[in-house]
């Protein structure tokens, strides 16, 4: 058996495993991100309701001290470039590694963010949080059920390809 064949089989096995780990990490990240967004929107709602904190200041705080998963999102938002907040919010949401439904819910919030009084603003945020909570639970269920499966499938696929090659 040539060394090339062995190296090829090893690479196949590694590629399969990497694919499985990547899928598994994506499922875990989605659950963590949704959970972080749920928590962050809760902070936003409280800050708006109790302290009337202006959004640029709030985004800055969340970019520095918010959950790790959402810091880059809020850092991008707080880098004001003169465009309307709804546009910036929408662009930042589109860059998040989430599904279409989740992005749609978040984009809808961007249309009202910063345009209304505190009570209306908090009502909107809480409405979105309620939807995020359901999505977070679904994402966690997917993570618990499928993360290990993806790793196992990836490893199996890699091993199978390696065996075929050998």
């Amino acid at each position: 058996m040539s060394a090339v064949k062995i190296a090829g089989a090893l690479l196949m096995a590694l590629a399969g495993a990497a694919l499985g780990f990547e899928r598994s990490a994506r499922v875990k990240l989605r659950a963590r991100l949704l959970s972080a967004l749920y928590a962050t929107l809760g902070v936003m709602s409280e800050e708006i309701s109790l302290l009337r904190t202006p959004l640029p200041e709030l985004f800055g705080q969340l970019a520095e001290r918010g959950p790790e998963e959402t810091r880059a999102f809020f850092a991008e938002l707080s880098a004001a470039d003169g465009s309307p907040l709804s546009e910036r919010w929408s662009a930042c949401v589109n860059a998040l590694p989430l599904g279409d439904e989740e992005r749609g819910v978040l984009r809808a919030l961007g249309l009202s963010l910063g345009r209304y009084d505190a009570a209306s603003q908090c009502t909107q945020i809480e409405h979105v949080r309620a939807q995020l909570q359901r999505m977070t639970e679904e994402a966690r269920a997917e993570r618990d059920g499928k993360a290990k499966t993806y790793v196992g499938l990836g490893l199996s696929l890699g091993a199978m390809l390696a065996v075929i090659l050998l």
Binding site: R52, T53, P54, L85, G114
Partner: peptide, 20 residues
């Protein structure tokens, strides 16, 4: 007019509620 208020308050109409 909502856009004017949004721009005047830096997208934070809630923060200017007292003034408004």
């Amino acid at each position: 007019m909502s856009t004017v208020l949004e721009r005047a308050t830096c997208s934070s109409v809630h923060a200017a509620e007292h003034e408004l």
